[in-house]
Design a protein around this nucleic acid. Structure first.
Lengths: 353, 353
DNA sequence: CTGAAAGCGCTAACAC
DNA sequence: GTGTTAGCGCTTTCAG
């Protein structure tokens, strides 16, 4: 690791001059040719600033704390972390991730992160809901991902559940389905109700009426299977919008029991939470991906702009000349998320589209 | 954040004395009563050491770098990260996680981690295989998780695939199955072959013969379903050991098509990679969990012991009086992993059991 | 325009 | 036993 001191000696200037130059604050303070020599020398010696040392003076570490719950039991966080990390990397930041179960654990982790001098926090939740911030989090900038902070004072990025429900139903309409069922979740979680509203809206927009017989909100296992069976018996659907891939499973089993094939006899669109079906069912099941990567990406951008007190133009990468990557390299079309900020709840930038 | 300086002033001693005391290196160097006063004052003021500042002198940050691939597309890493993080927290370390796709990305991430002064690396892979270490990683302590480093010079922790195959088959035997099928993966990946050997060994140990007709190694989708269908037709199994839960899916569909029920007509044991079935099938499917959490936990312990140049007794938590948690709180019995080190390949501590 | 000097919080020689 | 001193790599006044 070469230091500023070494560059200074090699160039025959002082460390302070080197500091100014390598931080790009030499305009009108250092003679251009000297600055150039310093820059060249720094490059030649492969200089990398030591963020820890500079943090001692500035108390900015360029480290973001990423807090998420129960990473262990669901794959949800992977995408968010990836997105956040990509954004952080472009902006010259690092991510320290911690995952927590329970509030005691959470508090301790937050304290630890503060000791390491993180500049701000990303607070990610497992599923979209209304959430309160841990007390300990209030002293530094925070952005919430995959959930909505209750008071609206903290920027939150969450899936656009309405659009998800709307688009899923739209696809089934386009596939020519006549009787489109909604297989939802029994729990009255946020996403459940809003996706259902999107489903209804899409049907209305197409001039169809919403038949309550076509709706089943089910839980797990045998009970869920029975619920789907009853739905099929009473309403003879030919298309299914499934709240998630776990629900899609029951439709599959119902089809298998009747000797019917998805993709031929029935159409199914599911929201993919777990990704297992990507392996088993890809060509047969139409999935809508939750915009995890995107949420992580924009949450990190937002957080950095909060930290640095300046708006980052999310359309281009700051501090670098490289162009922004497509929002989601794997699936550039799945951009269903929204940013909620105080005073912006009405005018939500629908990212992408 | 209170500093040593503040404690020193409040107690009327010098910072160096405070430093000695709070680092527990005051034995025979600081008068006990002074030490006690310092400790009390530190506690009263809620002193937390600033690890970044001390790293400037010691070049030890108490940060571990965690490198994993493709977190985004599989949930595997969650458990490893959780385990590593828990161990790190007990040992007073933090984890910086980065995930990478491709070697260029990997190199850049490693460089970035080095700039942040990580003390060592955890190198986690998506599935169990033989792996080479990136060049950039060789200058610091490394432990490999969920894979095996080729030369054997780097400690590696990986699932005990043989034991997994053996135990899974054992459970089917105990359930009274007469014709136990193996539904494997088409790819000749490491785990595939070894789990199959475990399967064979368990059958042999029970005095059963291995019927090749009971084995199907399948890929995805229709082809996989056909493979399982053919297996069922030709060999009439009543028990299935499935390489992973994706494979178990095809057995479920085959059962549904025949009006058979898992848990009544057929027994199924699957290795759970994706965890989706935990939600849909929990009471019906017997799963063997890969020991992700445990691998992460012990990998981090091992890494810290490498860094600090001393053996940590893995049976008790160093630097804290709190007892070790059960290896996996959720499922304390699933301890199927092994530590490989140079000169220890023969005598593998089978963790737990 | 440039450099000397002080200091961020902490550690480690070395005096006293 | 304890305090003084110097310095880790960097930023930031402030003289010159």
């Amino acid at each position: 690791m070469t230091t500023m001191k070494e560059i200074a000696q090699a160039t025959g200037v002082s460390v302070s001059t080197v500091s100014l130059v390598v931080n790009g604050r030499d305009q009108g303070r250092v003679k251009p040719d000297i600055a150039e020599r310093v820059r060249a020398q720094a490059k030649r010696m492969g200089y990398q600033p030591n963020p820890l040392a500079s943090s001692l003076r500035t108390s900015h570490t360029r480290i973001l704390g990423f807090i998420s719950e129960e990473v262990a039991t669901t794959p949800y966080a992977g995408g968010i972390i990836m997105g956040a990390q990509d954004a952080a990397a472009r902006l010259g930041y690092m991510l320290i991730t911690v995952s927590t179960d329970g509030v005691a654990e959470e508090g301790r982790q937050i304290t630890a992160l503060k000791r390491y001098g993180v500049d701000g926090f990303l607070y990610a939740k497992m599923y979209n809901r209304i959430t309160d911030l841990p007390r300990a989090l209030t002293t530094l900038p925070v952005v919430v991902a995959n959930a909505r902070e209750r008071t609206g004072r903290v920027p939150s990025i969450s899936p656009d559940e309405f659009q998800i429900g709307f688009d899923a139903t739209q696809r089934l309409l386009e596939a020519g389905c006549q009787r489109i069922a909604y297989v939802g979740d029994q729990d009255p979680i946020l996403a459940q109700g809003i996706r259902f509203k999107g489903y209804q809206a899409a049907l209305k927009a197409a001039g169809r009426r919403c038949d309550p017989a076509l709706v089943a909100n089910v839980g797990f296992n045998q009970q869920a299977l029975n619920g789907v069976e009853a739905l099929v018996e009473r309403a003879s659907p030919d298309g299914f919008f499934c709240f998630n891939d776990a629900r899609a499973w029951y439709v599959y089993e119902a089809a298998a029991r009747r000797g019917l094939a998805i993709g031929r006899d029935w159409s199914v669109v599911g929201v993919d939470n777990h990704r297992v079906f990507a392996e088993t069912l890809a060509p047969r099941l139409t999935t809508i991906e939750l915009p995890h990567y995107e949420m992580g990406y924009w949450a990190a951008c937002k957080l950095v702009s909060l930290i640095e007190g300046r708006e980052l133009d999310p359309a281009r990468a700051p501090d670098t000349t490289a162009p922004l990557p497509p929002l989601n390299a794997a699936n550039p079309t799945s951009i269903h998320c929204q940013l909620l900020e105080k005073d912006s709840v009405a005018a939500q930038p629908r990212l992408g589209e």
